[in-house]
């Protein structure tokens, strides 16, 4: 099994690296960039959602802040784009830590409400602060490279792929660390975890901030890649829902769960856009899919494929059941 998964990992990486050279046109490269971006965001969401069980519908707030931060630092402060990207991501992480201190004080439904409110507040602020952000008309970001549109897609495919790799590695490291163990304890029973000496408040804030950091990086890259920021789209609750839906569909307890979900949902979304045009019916499709996943597959696809989780998460079977397996 180990060699099989290693081979699969190798084949997946090779396939991803070769993808832009294999597809016949630049549109498919563009769709690939979008898919990899969503995969990175969903995996990043999963650093909070998967480990701690805190479902945030508002992570698009950090995406938007990262995008606007990068865009504004380039246009207003004249920074080179790499620096702007990094500075903006650090700023968003600090902001997320501050917001996190307040947000993770509440649990369950209240936390979801807070996360929804966060996106709405950011949207209102960015649209209202016209002199800085350009308001509803949006923000234009200058081109980073002197390349054609298609070549730019190629470059950003690899940039987003690198980000995805970084997020996956981070998730993997956390899941094997003491910190990750504490986060999982929070998911299973927060009060017991706290009683056992896990610094739950600090852990939650750190998870919240790390999760926001990578989403902000994705937002910053998006700003430089797409070069036109519209507050309605960038701070959209719907893209926040995409992160949750992708993670749930793939499986929140697994490293590659959100990635798998993104590979299914992002291309499906693009297909809907082409097949049905600018109609709103894609919202209905997303909504129905979310209802179906929540009702019938809250554990996601990965557990169905590989059976019981292997060390990546807390066991769901009891010690007695395991004993039975050994005996049988």
């Amino acid at each position: 099994m180990r060699t099989v998964s290693k081979l699969l990992l190798l084949a997946g990486t090779a396939g991803a690296l070769a993808y832009p050279w294999l597809v016949p046109n630049y549109y498919l490269v563009y769709a690939g960039v979008l898919t990899v971006m969503y995969a990175a965001m969903a995996t990043s969401w999963n650093i909070l959602g998967g480990f701690t069980g805190y479902v945030s519908l508002g992570h698009s707030a950090f995406f938007g802040l990262g995008a606007y931060g990068t865009g504004l630092l380039i246009t207003r402060a004249g920074m080179p784009w790499v620096l702007a990207l990094l500075v903006s991501a650090v700023l968003v992480t600090v902001a997320a830590a501050v917001i996190g201190v307040a947000a993770v004080r509440v649990r369950g439904a209240s936390f979801v409400i807070v996360s929804i409110a966060l996106v709405s507040v950011m949207n209102l602020l960015v649209q209202g602060w016209r002199s800085l952000t350009g308001g509803a008309t949006g923000l234009q970001v200058p081109a980073p490279f002197e390349l054609s549109r298609g070549q730019t897609h190629m470059v950003f495919f690899y940039l987003f792929l690198a980000l995805l790799g970084l997020v996956l590695l981070t998730w993997w490291f956390i899941s094997r660390s003491r910190f990750g163990g504490g986060l999982k304890a929070i998911r299973e029973d927060e009060d017991k975890a706290e009683m056992l000496g896990v610094p739950t408040a600090a852990f939650k804030v750190v998870a919240f901030a790390v999760s926001a950091l990578f989403v902000a990086l994705a937002g910053g890259l998006y700003a430089v890649w797409f070069r036109s920021l519209d507050p309605i789209f960038v701070f959209s609750i719907v893209s926040g829902v995409y992160m949750v839906l992708m993670s749930l569909l793939g499986g929140v307890r697994h490293l590659f769960g959100p990635l798998l979900g993104a590979l299914i949902i992002a291309p499906a979304g693009e297909y809907f856009l082409i097949a049905l045009g600018e109609s709103q019916i894609h919202l209905t499709a997303t909504g129905v899919l979310l209802v179906l996943v929540v009702l019938f597959m809250p554990e996601g696809i990965v557990p169905r494929l590989v059976g019981r989780p292997k060390g990546a998460s807390i066991r769901e079977d009891t010690a007695e059941q395991r004993l039975q397996e050994v005996k049988g």
């Binding site: 829902v241 709103q280 919202l283 209905t284 499709a285 997303t286 909504g287 129905v288 979310l290 209802v291």
Partner: peptide, 9 residues
């Protein structure tokens, strides 16, 4: 939330 999206769409 899924219901809301469905209705909006």
């Amino acid at each position: 939330f899924g219901l809301a999206l469905t209705i909006e769409g």
